[in-house]
């Protein structure tokens, strides 16, 4: 999934390039017609032969298994193994409160996306504006991005334990203990918060790269005109970085939807009360723990459709951002 979705991000740039290259083939064609003869057929076939490996690999190792999986989701589990059951698995899926929670959490992730983008954006802005100590922050902020989700999860399990240091710190200033990972109303936000902490370093780097292309004369002009920090961000930085922001939106979304499994597994195991389930985790539980591979296939198909819709929206978003630029 991530590879498939990340590709479109380079497409607008390519599209721009081919426009410029249109004239070259026509010049080439003149040359080729002169050489027309015995070799032309092989030459006509050559491009197809050359793209064949890529296409074969995609068809054999991606599309074909995908179709098998979709087909498998229409068969039964256990006693009905191998028999066609129509839409039974899908009906069961959408009847399962746990799967609905998982879908609801996907919605929550989408809603929290602006926060996940704003944090690295703001911090990158501060670094760009050279707040005191910005050199240290630049490396410190990136540090969590090199840790694996399992290690991050283990660290925060310790920090956020009911008798852990965070609650002890809260207690010392007179605030009661919070069961960070045991309260169904806050556990999901905690996990997302940790995920953002662990991954914002990458987005920060992308933002810093975006800032490198920003015309500093505009900033100086705004300052001379007496713009406040907020006004600088609102009227200079955001419009100047629209393309970078769109790119970070897309990559953060993909990251949130596809790589939260490790954190969830380590930090909450889908709990408490099933409140932190995501579709991936649901699929894993059904396949591995409940011995329901066909139901898991149906859930995978549902997740695939969701990702497809999200992916297409992202492509659209990127195209539009590219055009504005």
């Amino acid at each position: 999934m991530p590879i498939g979705n990340a590709q479109p991000s380079v497409r607008p740039a390519q599209a721009g390039r081919t426009d410029g290259a249109v004239t070259i083939p026509s010049a080439h064609r003149g040359g080729r017609s002169r050489r027309a003869g015995g070799g032309s057929r092989a030459e006509r076939l050559a491009p197809y032969v050359l793209v064949a490996p890529a296409i074969l690999i995609i068809v054999l190792l991606r599309l074909y298994p995908l179709l098998l999986g979709v087909n498998f989701s229409f068969t039964g589990d256990g006693a009905r193994n191998g028999t066609t059951v129509g839409l039974d698995n899908y009906l069961e899926l959408f009847d399962d409160p746990l799967f609905r929670t998982a879908l609801g959490n996907v919605g929550l992730l989408v809603l929290l996306l602006p926060v996940a983008v704003a944090i690295p954006g703001l911090l990158a802005t501060f670094i760009y504006l050279r707040v005191p100590g910005h050199r240290i922050y630049r490396s410190v902020y990136f540090f969590p991005a090199v840790l694996s989700p399992v290690i991050v999860g283990a660290i925060f399990n310790l920090l956020l334990a009911f008798d852990g240091p965070l609650n002890a710190a809260l207690g010392s200033v007179g605030i009661g203990s919070v069961d960070w990972l045991g309260d169904p109303d806050i556990a999901m936000f905690v996990v997302v918060g940790v995920h953002i902490w662990a991954t914002f370093g990458m987005a920060l780097v992308v933002f810093l790269a975006g800032f490198a292309t920003l015309d500093s004369a505009l900033l100086d002009a705004a300052r001379v005109d007496g713009a406040s920090l907020f006004q600088v961000i609102r009227h200079v930085i955001i419009p100047g970085l629209s393309r970078t922001i769109a790119f970070v939106f897309v990559t953060t979304m993909v990251g949130m939807l596809t790589s939260m499994f490790g954190l969830l597994y380590v930090m909450t195991s889908g709990g408490p009360e099933g409140s932190t389930y995501l579709p991936e985790y649901y699929i894993w539980i059904q396949q591995g723990q409940m011995n329901r591979p066909a139901l898991a296939s149906a859930a995978s198909t549902a997740l695939f459709v969701i990702m497809l819709v999200v992916g297409l929206l992202q492509v659209k978003l990127l195209r539009r951002a590219g055009r504005e630029d």
């Binding site: 092989a42 076939l45 490996p53 074969l56 054999l60």
Partner: peptide, 24 residues
């Protein structure tokens, strides 16, 4: 030219075989 097509075909087959092999 023909030879090039033949080589491409060999390449394709080889890659496809390698793909299958690693999957199995």
């Amino acid at each position: 030219m023909k030879q090039r097509a033949v080589w491409s075909a060999v390449l394709v087959l080889g890659l496809a075989m390698a793909g299958c092999g690693s999957a199995a």
